[in-house]
């Protein structure tokens, strides 16, 4: 009997941790201190998807910005171009996507509050999984000059 119970338990445990949102983690969210007169800002984070379902970051909301767009900066022969990623930022199952300066970022438009060193900004990141299911990850970004 013991021989059957243990594998059964393991399957149950694995089934629980395989939950879609359980596989997703957003680490080290941060943004740079920004001049008061600046109307824009950017937030960065490391998004890991340890789950079995693909995820896509499709948007974000925060009181700190009127609008948020998902953007990518790209260096092309020394020329910096920035464009909106209308389809969001994909985070396929088993991958880690790093949002960082000069690359992918959460772009804050019409900044509503000063972003001062040491501040914390609450953001709700909206994800869509492979089944089209929406879910929100709430994060707190540190305002730091890195």
């Amino acid at each position: 009997m013991k021989r059957i119970v243990l594998p059964l338990l393991m399957v149950l445990v694995a089934g629980c941790s395989g939950d879609d949102s359980g596989g997703l983690s957003v680490d080290d969210p941060w943004g740079r201190p920004t001049p008061d007169v600046a109307t824009t800002a950017a937030f960065f984070a490391t998004i890991s998807n340890a789950g079995t379902a693909d995820e896509t970051l499709v948007g974000a909301t925060t009181d700190a910005c009127r609008v948020i767009e998902l953007h990518e900066s790209q260096m092309d022969d020394g020329v910096m171009r920035m464009q909106q990623l209308a389809g969001g930022i994909p985070v396929p199952a088993g991958t880690t996507v790093v949002l960082q300066p000069g690359g992918l970022h959460i772009m804050c438009i019409d900044k509503q509050v000063p972003l001062v060193e040491g501040d914390e900004v609450a953001l709700d990141l909206e994800f869509v999984d492979g089944d089209g299911e929406r879910h929100t990850e709430s994060i707190t970004a540190a305002v730091e000059d890195r």
């Binding site: 740079r32 920004t34 001049p35 007169v37 600046a38 109307t39 824009t40 800002a41 950017a42 953007h71 900066s73 910096m80 920035m82 300066p101 000069g102 970022h105 772009m107 804050c108 000059d145």
Partner: peptide, 13 residues
């Protein structure tokens, strides 16, 4: 330019 949220503030910093 000042509307630049990512690269310009990073370089200035």
């Amino acid at each position: 330019y000042t509307f630049c949220p990512d690269v310009c503030p990073t370089t200035l910093s």
